[in-house]
């Protein structure tokens, strides 16, 4: 988001947001584990298969009015990488 030439980064998408969406679209089992541990594990390691990721990506695109790149979400991507990708899109200047 650009205001009078000064770039303001809005960290609009957090791990809490991602966890909420994952639970909504793919269901919850036990506790996922401490945030520090899950941030850097691949989604496959966290137990989310391809359709769960497709569903998660679709929900983020819908809720945040963005379009994720094709490679933004797959089995090896980590929550940290996805959160960064979403925030980059949210802070990008509108075209």
């Amino acid at each position: 988001m650009t205001t009078k030439g000064t770039e303001v980064t809005v960290r609009a998408f957090t791990l809490e947001d991602l966890k909420r969406i994952l639970v909504e679209v793919a269901g919850a089992d036990e506790d996922m584990g401490p945030d520090a541990e899950i941030l850097d594990l691949g989604f496959e390691q966290l137990g989310y298969e391809s359709l769960a990721l497709l569903e998660t990506g679709g929900r983020i695109e819908r809720d945040y009015a963005i379009t994720l790149a094709d490679d933004a979400l797959h089995a090896e991507v980590t929550p940290r990488e996805l959160i960064d990708a979403v925030n980059n899109l949210l802070s990008a200047p509108a075209v």
Binding site: E24, V25, A26, G27, A28, D29, G47, L51, E55
Partner: peptide, 8 residues
Amino acid sequence: LPGRLLPQ
């Protein structure tokens, strides 16, 4: 059933 199975 596990929660993960319910949405699908």
